[in-house]
Design a protein around this nucleic acid. Structure first.
Length: 208
DNA sequence: CATGGGATTGACT
DNA sequence: GTCAATCCCATGC
């Protein structure tokens, strides 16, 4: 019937320029155990620009970032939140796509339980995964997942399917960084209500 | 060994 | 709009 189950993206999908991969991940499904959601917001990072962790070179923290493509790079932000990235380009090059927001699909009750009572206030589902720290908490992704494959095992990203086969994508500037702020390396699903703030400026005229 | 910064979130003015 | 919480790790003495 209409619920087409799609396949995990192979490692080769990620072995390309990070600026190609980042927009193509919009509409794909991130799955961890029984919880999953459609990716509606991403950002690209590359060792050539100073907002990327790899800019300073290979360190213990960024070991995974320089490793083979198609794996998860998970690190702690502000001492509080776990952030999930998909490692891209060839091994030895530090590049990754930060997964910033999901539209929840399965395991929503479990996501609400993990996120706590704050996420149980309306608009509930719009706030469940509307940020990189939020989605990691909702899906139970932690530092333990650093280095894991995104093609095999409990943590996977599945190819676009169904209504998400050809999404409208809006570009904008990356969020929460202090350097290379002018690069428009943020990609969002156009008009989607599950994107994090600030919502990107759409090129479409304002609606009546 | 001490210090400072950071790809965030939630609470508050 | 502002601001603190909180931990990993890069840097420097």
């Amino acid at each position: 019937m209409s619920s087409a189950s799609s396949s995990p993206l192979p490692a080769d999908f990620y072995a390309r320029p990070v600026l190609e991969v980042a927009p193509e991940l919009i509409g794909c499904t991130l799955q961890h155990g029984r919880t999953s959601g459609v990716i509606v917001e991403t950002e690209a990072y590359h060792q050539s620009e100073p907002a990327c962790h790899a800019f300073a070179g290979l360190t213990p923290r960024t070991k995974t970032l320089f490793g083979p493509p198609g794996r998860a790079y998970v690190y702690r932000s502000y001492g509080v939140h776990a952030l999930l990235n998909a490692v891209c380009e060839a091994e030895g090059i530090g590049a990754a796509v930060l997964i910033r927001a999901l539209q929840p699909v399965t395991g929503i009750a479990r996501m609400r339980a993990r996120r706590g009572p704050l996420a149980n206030r309306p608009p509930r589902d719009a706030q469940l995964c509307s940020g990189p720290g939020k989605l990691a908490q909702a899906l139970g992704i932690g530092l333990d997942d650093d280095g894991r494959s995104l093609s095999r095992g409990p943590l996977r990203i599945l190819a676009r399917a169904g209504a998400w086969r050809d999404p409208v994508i809006v570009e904008g500037e990356r969020v929460g960084i202090t350097r290379a702020v002018e690069l428009r390396w943020r990609f969002c699903a156009g008009g989607n209500g599950h994107v994090s703030r600030p919502r990107p400026r759409s090129s479409l005229a304002s609606e009546a």
